[in-house]
Amino acid sequence: MKPLSILVAIALLVGSVVAAECGQVDFPKKGQPITLIIPWAAGASSDIGGRLLALGMEKELGVPVQVVNKPGASGQVGMTELAQSRADGHTIAYSALSSVAMNYLDPGRKATFQRKDLAAVAAHVGDTRAIAVKANSPYKSPKDLAEAIKANPGKIKAGTVGAMSDTHFAQLWFEKLAGGQFAYVHYRGGGEAIPALMGGQVDTYFGSTSELHPLVKSGEFRVLAVLGKKESPFLPGVKTAEAQGYPVFYTTFRDLYVPGATPKEVIDILARAIKKVMESEEHKKKVEGEMGLPLDFQGPDEVEKAWDEIEKTMKELIPLARK
C-alpha cells in the first residue's frame, strides 16, 4: 500500500510538472470517467439537481460523469472520501458549503478532513432561506416573531431538518439578534419538517425558497422574510429580513469540490464546463424553471471567498448550537 501511494504521488508530481511545462493539462483524460460524489441519499431535490448537472457536464467534457451517492453524517462520509481521493479532477463532489464547513469546524465531530484538503470549483445553486409560518399564524413580520421569542423564551417551537443543519443555524442566528429563544424540534429532513409546520406541530420553519414557494402559492404558508441580500423572484412581495431590521443572511449554496491538491488548471477546466452547462437553456429550464432551485454560478475564487465568510458564521453559530 505505502510504496504504491508514494509511486502515485511521484507520478502525480511528474505529471503536474510536465503539464505545467506544456502550459496545459491533459484533462479530462480520454475515456476515463469522472466520479461525482453526492454525499446525500439519492432522491432529494438537491441530489436531482446534482444529477442534472452531471448530465450536462458529460456533454461538455466528453467523458462519462458517474454519480455515486455516499450518504451519512451530514455529508461528512462523502466529503471525507473526496478529501482522500486522487487529486486529478476525476473525482469531484457536490455538497452544501455550510455543511462542509460545519463538518470540520464542529469539535463534536472530530474532523476527518480540513479545509486545506478540499478546493472549491464552482457554485451551482444558491437556495436562499426564508422564515415561514402557517398562513393563519399570529406572526406577521420578523418583528412579531422576535418579540414572541423574547417574551416567551423556549415556548415558540421551531422545526429544523436536523440538529446542526442549515435551518437550525439560520434560526440560531435570528434568535441571537432577537435576544430570545426557540424550542427546537429536530426532524429528519424537509419531508418531515414541512408537514410538521402544516399540522401545527411547530410554529415556524426557516425553509429554503425552493421548498417553500409552492406552499406559499397554495396559501398554506406565509413567508415573513427572505434571508438573502436581495428579494427572491420565487417569493414576490416578501422583503428581506435585513430590510425589516433583522440582518440575518442564510443561503444554502450547493457547490462543487475537488481534493485540495488538484491543479488550478484542472479546476478551471471543470469550472468552465459547469458554467457552460448552467448557461444552457435546457439546464435553466429543468433546474430553475421546473424544480425551483435558483441557479447561481460562481467561479472558484468567489466560492473560496464565500467559504471564508461561512467559516466565520459557523464559528459563531456552532457554539450556540452546542450550548
Binding site: G43, A44, S45, G191, I194, M198, K286, M291
Partner: peptide
C-alpha cells in the same frame, strides 16, 4: 392533496412531478 412527501420514495416522486413542471 397537500404536496407533502411522507416518505423518502414519495419525495423522489415529488421531484419527478416537479421536474415535469
Amino acid at each position: 392533496t397537500l404536496g407533502i412527501p411522507s416518505s423518502p420514495t414519495i419525495a423522489v416522486l415529488m421531484g419527478a412531478f416537479m421536474m415535469n413542471g
